[in-house]
Amino acid sequence: MNYHLATSFEEAARIAANAGGTTRFLAGGTDVLVQMRAGMVLPDDLIDLKAIPGTDAMTQLADGSWQIGVAVPGARLGANADLCRDWPGVVEGMELVGSTQVQGRATLTGNLCNGSPAADSVPGLVAAGATVVITGPEGSRELPVEEVPTGPGKTALNKGELISEIRLPARGDNAGDAYLRFTPRTEMDIAVVGCAVSLRLDGDKIVEARVSLGAVAPTVLLVAEAADAIIGTTLDDAALDALAAAASKAAKPISDKRGSAEYRIEIAGVLAKRAAKIAYGRAKGDNK
């Protein structure tokens, strides 16, 4: 295996585009190293991105939006008070990925590119309306996060392409987001179901919402029907029930070792309600 320490995204893209065998990009490495160890992936070329300037940066622009470098580990998201204030749901999603130790390495970009439908940080990004900048041999393009995964372990990235930045929109006023996942243990587990809700209020009424579900389909879902169920409401019981029903209806899970389809469909509704309540509370100014 050849180990490359790239110093620019263009160089990384060039190495990847010209590589003959199996190529992997290395940021936090918490998925790649596990796959290498298990013999599932034995890369011929491993391209480390951490020496590229800016990959460890987290910047809030003047318009309030955020740029997050591809090598920023989860622990640093949680340590950034401004980001936690703006996008607590995004941060708590990332913080559920693995242990404290894993948080020292694992990145949003890696969690996204691993292509797992159960990736904990992805529903929060999708609900937030985040986008990614992709650098490739043909130049750069921007894509909504929900369009990056195309199936388990698969992404919309072409050969030689890699994500060079994650962008979060400005949060704006009277808004909140939240992510919840369900696992049998309190920690160190893969989501049976995950759900993120982001919403904005006008007074008590929800005027904007995005709802995203994880682990209930081949990719993380953006569920417009679930958002519609609460837009225009004050998140009363009827709205919550409609939200749960829409979330459960959108869920098209498989049955596997982590949960049956039937159970996942049910839990999708439960989590949607709970996450919406938290997001609503945050939009009202709750600190939690």
């Binding site: 180990y3 290395l26 936090g28 490495g29 918490t30 190293l33 596990v34 160890r37 480390d48 951490k50 580990p73 622990a75 242990s99 404290t100 130790q101 894993v102 020292g104 390495r105």
Partner: peptide, 13 residues
Amino acid sequence: GTLVCSCLVLGVE
């Protein structure tokens, strides 16, 4: 200064 699993870091890193 960051807590990590050393099994998830390459020696070269």
